[in-house]
Amino acid sequence: MVIYSIGVEVPITPTEPLPSLPVIPHGALVILEGRAPIWRYVMAFHALHGLASAVGIYDPRLGVVVVASHSTEYREGDILDIRI
C-alpha cells in the first residue's frame, strides 16, 4: 500500500503540478488522499494509470474506496477499513 497525498491548502488552478509520484512497488495499491478539487484527483488517477495495480480514494467517513483494479486482491467498489 502506497499513500499519494495530493491535497492543497489554498485555491489552485489546473496548471499547478501534482506532487512527485511516490515509489510504487509492483502490485501495489495506491491510495489518493487530501483535500483537493475533483479535477486534481482525476489528473492524479491518470498519472497512476499503468503504474499501480489498484487505486483507492480515501474517504474519511468510509475508509478507502477502490475505484480501479487490475488485481485479484482488490475489486472496484471494495471499501477497505484503512484510516489515514
Rank of each mutant, 00 (worst) to 15 (best):
M1E: 07
V2A: 03
S5H: 15
G7P: 02
V8W: 02
V8P: 00
E9Y: 11
V10L: 14
P11Y: 07
P11M: 01
I12S: 09
T13F: 05
T13V: 13
T13P: 02
T13H: 09
T13A: 13
T13S: 15
P14Q: 12
P14K: 08
E16K: 14
P17H: 12
L18M: 08
L18H: 08
L18I: 05
P19L: 03
S20D: 15
L21M: 14
L21V: 07
L21R: 13
P22D: 09
P22L: 02
I24P: 01
I24G: 05
A28Q: 05
A28D: 12
L29T: 07
L29V: 03
V30W: 03
L32D: 08
L32K: 00
E33V: 05
E33A: 12
E33G: 00
G34L: 06
G34S: 07
R35M: 04
R35L: 06
R35P: 00
R35W: 04
A36R: 09
P37E: 10
P37C: 12
P37T: 12
I38W: 12
W39I: 07
W39P: 00
Y41H: 04
Y41F: 15
V42I: 14
V42W: 09
M43E: 15
M43H: 02
A44F: 04
F45M: 09
F45W: 08
F45G: 05
H46R: 15
H46T: 11
A47F: 03
L48H: 10
H49F: 11
G50L: 09
A52Y: 06
A52T: 03
S53C: 08
S53V: 01
S53K: 04
A54L: 08
A54N: 05
A54G: 02
V55P: 00
G56C: 05
I57P: 00
D59K: 11
P60Y: 08
P60M: 01
P60T: 05
P60C: 01
R61V: 06
L62C: 01
V64W: 02
V65P: 00
V66F: 10
V66R: 12
V66A: 08
V67T: 13
A68R: 11
A68K: 11
S69R: 10
S71T: 06
S71M: 09
T72C: 04
T72D: 15
T72A: 11
T72K: 15
E73H: 10
E73D: 13
Y74Q: 05
Y74F: 15
Y74P: 01
E76H: 02
E76F: 06
E76R: 15
G77V: 09
G77I: 10
I79K: 13
L80Q: 08
D81W: 07
I82M: 07
I82L: 15
R83G: 00
R83W: 10
R83H: 14
I84V: 15
